[in-house]
Computed example of a mutant assay.
Amino acid sequence: MARLWARLTCAPVTIADAERRRQIQFLSGLLLALSVLGALSLAIQALFVPGFHRTLLFLAPALAFLLLAYGLNCTGRYMPAALMAMAIMVAGSISALWADPNDAFAFAYLVVPVFLARLFLAERHFLIATGTIVLVVMVAASALDVPVARVAAGSIFVVLVSAILWLAIRHRAAVEKDRRAELAQREARYRSVITTMAEGITVQLNDSTVVDCNPAAERILGMSRDQLAGRTPIDPRWRAIH
């Protein structure tokens, strides 16, 4: 099961950035989960809920668009997929209010688009997207005669979630930046030490393949770093060195 899930949520090989690959994998998993939950909801409501046709008008197209977004994401078009998922969940919130203006959970749908906006959009665009989401839902709720108190509470809920996500991801970005800076400093110190050493040093992988060396090793072995890269201690080409 875990292997199947890994295959279904894998990122395209054309995406080299590790962070972006993780985001694509997360989005694939989210879209699949939403599709499964939507299908289950569709089946349950078809069996047990009177007046199901009103919900069907939203759920059926939503499932189709979720699967389309999943397909786009799997081909590396993660931004259109994320925007489509955001639009679907906003529509879900409006649809829930249309079906029942007193639905206490209608605004909970908006957590997903707000989170996706923070994950895939730049900070300024995230704030614009959040404001747009709140405005659209407020206008729709007013048109559907949703009680003003519920609209206000829902809007405050979305703003609070947005603020929490903004702070959390910003903190994570700061931590990641500090970690990368520390790694860069360590690498600089490492290179400074081995570069000035008189002894020849080669850096090898677990299989003894040479991946780096210092100038002393180049001088002693009579080969450049590029020539040494990829060789192993038992490489027959060493015989050519005298």
Rank of each mutant, 00 (worst) to 15 (best):
V90A: 10
V90M: 11
A91L: 14
A91I: 05
G92A: 07
G92N: 07
S93R: 03
S93I: 05
S93N: 06
S93A: 15
I94R: 05
I94A: 12
S95V: 04
A96R: 14
L97W: 02
L97Y: 03
W98K: 05
W98S: 14
W98Q: 10
W98R: 11
A99G: 01
A99Y: 00
A99N: 12
D100Y: 05
D100G: 08
D100E: 13
D100W: 02
P101A: 00
N102Y: 13
N102I: 09
D103A: 13
D103F: 04
D103M: 02
D103K: 08
D103H: 02
D103I: 00
F105S: 15
A106C: 03
F107R: 04
F107K: 01
F107V: 06
F107M: 06
F107L: 09
A108Y: 15
A108T: 14
Y109H: 14
L110W: 15
L110E: 15
V111K: 15
V112D: 01
V112L: 15
P113S: 11
V114I: 15
V114P: 03
V114L: 13
F115R: 13
F115W: 07
F115Y: 14
L116K: 06
L116T: 09
L116A: 09
A117W: 01
A117C: 00
F120M: 03
F120R: 02
L121H: 08
L121G: 03
L121Y: 05
L121R: 04
A122L: 04
A122H: 06
E123H: 06
R124F: 03
R124D: 12
H125G: 06
H125M: 06
H125L: 10
H125N: 10
F126D: 05
F126M: 08
F126T: 09
L127P: 00
I128Q: 11
I128M: 04
A129L: 07
A129V: 04
A129G: 05
A129K: 04
T130H: 10
G131N: 13
G131A: 08
G131Y: 09
T132S: 13
T132M: 08
I133T: 15
I133L: 11
I133F: 12
V134I: 15
L135C: 07
L135Y: 11
L135I: 00
L135H: 12
V136L: 11
V136Q: 03
V136I: 13
V136C: 08
V136F: 03
